[in-house]
Design a protein around this nucleic acid. Structure first.
Lengths: 344, 344
DNA sequence: CAGGACCGTTTATACGTATAAGCAGTTGAT
DNA sequence: ATCAACTGCTTATACGTATAAACGGTCCTG
């Protein structure tokens, strides 16, 4: 492969091939307004580009202009699922409409300022990162590396004077589930919180929403920390039964299960142990995964709608890049709605 | 925020702060061997770096050296799931051990040569992409932009003289499922193939494995194209029943369902229509998702093990970068094994 | 027919880095 | 005492691009 040994063509090569100056090539390729180039010359340049297979050198451009068009999204810590994937895809599309290039950058192994340094090396024009990572120090590093916009993604209530924040309303999810459980006749409320690292924080937030509703109505509330395994769940259930959950026709128990996966786990173990859903225990999940509709009984769940988020995020980012942080808008990453089925 | 207006510090700023030359700063920060710098000077440089919050400019470095340390992974088209996510995370870790920086770059909207051009702009040192995207033209663009290693991820049997390829043995999965179904007493074999765009190709491959086994034993084989919906599945089932699937105690039907999600869909609809699993119909899924163990009956499934893949991939990539494409190794992206449960 | 406006292009330069080459000062061998 | 080798730096330069400034030509206006 001889194209491997020879060096990549530059805009100067294109210029020579087209019989013009390198500046002209640059003007044509960036079709800069305010500079007039004849259509014939433009055509010659484009032909030369195609003939040579010229591809501009992003690094050189970044060096010259002082900034890239890259938007860095180091979202390794957000758990992947249809939701996150849809969000990323939408964001990619919206940002590219605005002329940015979105890049996902794991770098999970790095923390704090070290991570910020790694991000800064690419001189992205913007960084979109989990809010808890954006310490004062980290943000300083980013800004002093010339990054225009730093936008955090955090939970409602996480207060930052440092950066614009997009909020995730986990408590609202829990509250919505709890309200629904009460409306369907539950007398107690339980929130299941995963013990897994990446999920636990969000689980606690959602549980807080359930607890808030329980407190407002003066109803008993329980938080159950759960590992994703049948045996662990069965063990919890024994303890639960000893506490008098089953059999008592007067009390119906409402459980918000963090997400649909945990709801499925719970329902499987409940069924194996002779509990009736929704008569003994009503269950609400979250995410509206395909499996929700396939469970028997069909799972009532909270669906998150991130359809609007990419456009709003992209607009916000663009605005911050262009105008600086005049205001610190707080945007909701999703709206949520209850999908009522047969498990409640 | 005054750090926004002032420009980012350069290695020259660091040099002035430390009272040395810019070259010395570079030597120290890259701790280049063959150049001797006193420990005292080294310390002064590092202090200055910390004091100024200096972060190197990746673009400038790329410009100078002719190549970045970036590995581009434009895998937007591979369906996300625990498998793909684990693979990406592992790859990120392994590549960083070798001094590379892995970047995920969607660019889903671009096709063919246009996509290759977009990838090439960043002058990555390597690109890891779906094999079907790597046309001769696209690869030429990448190579002529100086990219050292282009590695394709393709299915077994996809033959490329162009690039090294990592293979995904979908047929092997289908074959393994089919063999197991036969061993458990099935008299017919059916493969379910999703109609969804991103999944269909893989579905056809897996189905081909089932068909191969059926042909080898001279058994009836059916391919069922299915959308992920209960109504569509129920409709197929009616047709199926008319063809005499149910009731006949002499024939047991074996179905490979593409993945666990489809298996769950199928099992739900089968149960709703009075079929018995595994007595009437035996079902095998794929992926061993958490839900597999929670289904009743528990789902027999093919588990893909990608644990070794990241290390092997990273090694291969490193070797190709350093030595060029001497050989064109073909590596398997995963090994697969049957997880036997109660649905067969 | 002078002089300005405009058109289409070129010349020149800076961005931040890595590295080859050079250069004082010191040490060691002969 | 001499020269070579070594130590610990510095000087100088090129990478590919964008863009301000300059520049020769044509056209229009008065």
């Amino acid at each position: 492969m001889d194209s491997m040994s020879t060096k990549p063509p530059t805009s100067l090569d294109v210029a020579r091939e087209a019989g013009v100056s390198q500046a002209t090539v640059s003007y044509v390729l960036n079709n800069r307004e305010g500079v007039r180039i004849s259509d014939e010359t433009r055509a010659r340049v484009h032909e030369a580009v195609d003939r040579l297979g010229y591809v501009p050198h992003a690094g050189a451009r970044t060096l010259r202009t002082g900034h890239s068009r890259l938007v860095l999204v180091p979202l390794a810590d957000i758990p992947y699922g249809p939701l996150a994937v849809g969000l990323m895809e939408g964001l990619d599309r919206e940002l590219s409409k605005l002329g940015y290039t979105m890049i996902q950058y794991g770098a999970r192994r790095l923390k704090g300022v070290a991570a910020a340094r790694a991000w800064a090396e690419l001189r992205p024009v913007a960084v979109l990162a989990p809010a808890e990572r954006l310490t004062r120090q980290a943000v300083d590093v980013l800004h002093s590396a010339g990054i225009r916009a730093v936008i955090g993604i955090g939970v409602v209530g996480w207060s930052s004077e440092i950066v614009s924040t997009v909020t995730m309303d986990h408590e609202g999810i829990g509250a919505m589930a709890a309200e629904h459980l009460l409306a369907r006749g539950s007398h107690t409320l339980t929130a299941i919180v995963p013990v897994e690292d990446g999920l636990r924080d969000m689980g606690l937030r959602r549980a807080a929403g359930v607890q808030r509703v329980a407190a407002a109505r003066g109803l008993p509330y329980t938080q159950v920390d759960l590992a994703f395994s049948e045996t662990a769940t069965a063990a919890r259930l024994d303890a639960w039964r000893d506490a008098g959950v089953s059999g008592d026709a007067r009390t119906k128990h409402g459980v918000f299960a963090y997400n649909d996966d945990y709801a499925m786990l719970l329902m499987a173990v409940l069924a194996d142990n002779g509990f009736s859903v929704p008569d003994d225990v009503a269950v609400v999940g979250c995410d509206d995964l395909p499996l929700a509709e396939l469970l028997r009984p069909r799972l009532t769940t909270v669906r998150l709608n991130v359809a609007d988020a990419p456009a709003v995020l992209a607009q916000t980012l663009d605005q911050v890049v262009k105008e600086g942080v005049t205001r610190r808008p707080r945007l909701a990453l999703w709206t949520h709605a209850l999908v009522e089925r047969d498990s409640t």
